Computed example of a mutant assay.
Amino acid sequence: MTWGLVSNWILPGLWITVQVAVFSALIALVVSFVVGTLRTSELWIVRFLSGAYFEIFRGASALVVIFWFAFAFPLLFGWQLVPLWAGALALGLTYGAYGSEIVRGSLAAVPEAQREAGIALSFTRLQRLRRIEIPQAWPEMVPPFNNLAIELLKGTALVSVIAVADLAFAGNVIRLSTNESAPVYTLLLVIYFVLAFGVTRGMRAVERHAKRGVGKLPERKPLFSRAGTATAGGSTTDGGAR
């Protein structure tokens, strides 16, 4: 595998993967909060419709949803989507359904007394969400959102099946042209790991900021944790004999 193949395929594929990940993550974030908050509505019809969306997209394969937007959507509506946007939209709507459950569960975990205080202050439902519930629930959403973002990043490889020249597509082209599977896919593994690690570090920074916003002292986690655990006296124990 030469530098020319890397510069002509891997680097452009990396840029496409980042674009798909960012666009689909933005769509998923919006869907997560809209559907998640609607699922806590007092109106049964709103809860039913938002719950139906959640169940449909949770039960559908992301790959099939990508195929639907790429091939069925133009036939039904007469509007051909650019493959990159078809993939990003499919991933965003699919992972947004999972994210809506994170939002719904975090909002449900807010103490009932906080909601009652908002009602006593004559806050509307939107005001209670904006001023009371979401600020308290947001720090609890970040860790599961981090896991979801990693899964979405890895899921971007699915867009290669509709000829989007992402990392997976580029790796397959190089493999077919050079017949070198091990170095190509090892390089892809390393690139995906670096991307996922960067997402994790960024989300941890967001989590610390969110906890400071609600008066919680964030726990600083080391880059790589040690086997021993700290005791009250400052010593460490590892549960084994010395």
Rank of each mutant, 00 (worst) to 15 (best):
K154M: 11
A163T: 11
L76V: 08
R201V: 14
P111T: 01
T237Q: 14
R208W: 06
K154W: 02
G99Y: 11
T186C: 13
F33C: 10
S41K: 00
L223E: 15
G171K: 11
G202R: 00
P183Q: 10
T37W: 08
L11P: 05
A25I: 05
Y185K: 06
Y185D: 12
T229R: 14
I56Y: 04
A72H: 03
F48I: 14
G78Y: 07
T156P: 02
V184G: 06
G92R: 02
F48P: 01
F48M: 12
R201W: 01
L107G: 00
R201E: 14
F57H: 09
L84K: 07
F193S: 09
A149I: 01
A108H: 00
P144R: 07
P139A: 07
G59P: 11
W79A: 05
W15E: 11
T17W: 14
P144V: 15
R128Y: 02
F197T: 04
A170V: 04
W9E: 14
A108P: 00
R242A: 13
S100P: 00
I150R: 08
R220Q: 15
N179T: 12
N8Y: 10
R128T: 04
A230K: 07
L63H: 04
I16K: 07
F77T: 06
R115Q: 09
F33T: 03
G4S: 07
T229S: 12
E207P: 03
A52G: 12
W68D: 01
Q19Y: 12
V34N: 00
G240T: 08
L93R: 00
Y95V: 01
S122Q: 12
L176C: 07
T200E: 15
P83M: 01
A113W: 06
S177P: 12
L43W: 06
L49Q: 09
F169Y: 15
L89Q: 02
G240S: 13
L158S: 07
S7E: 13
S7C: 05
E219I: 12
R125A: 14
K221N: 11
A196D: 13
L91W: 13
A113T: 08
V30D: 01
V161A: 15
F197L: 13
R39D: 05
M1K: 08
A165S: 09
R115G: 12
W68L: 15
F169C: 07
L89V: 14
G215S: 08
F33E: 02
R212S: 09
L167C: 01
A60R: 04
G239M: 05
I174T: 03
E151R: 08
G92K: 04
I10K: 02
Q80K: 13
I56Q: 03
L11T: 05
G233V: 01
L43Q: 06
V46K: 00
P218W: 00
F57Y: 05
E101Q: 14
R47Y: 12
R128I: 03
V18R: 13
W9V: 11
A241I: 01
W15K: 10
L176F: 09
V206M: 14
T186N: 11
I132D: 10
G234K: 04
E133G: 03
R220D: 15
G36F: 08
T156A: 11
E116S: 12
K154I: 09
L49N: 10
E180G: 00
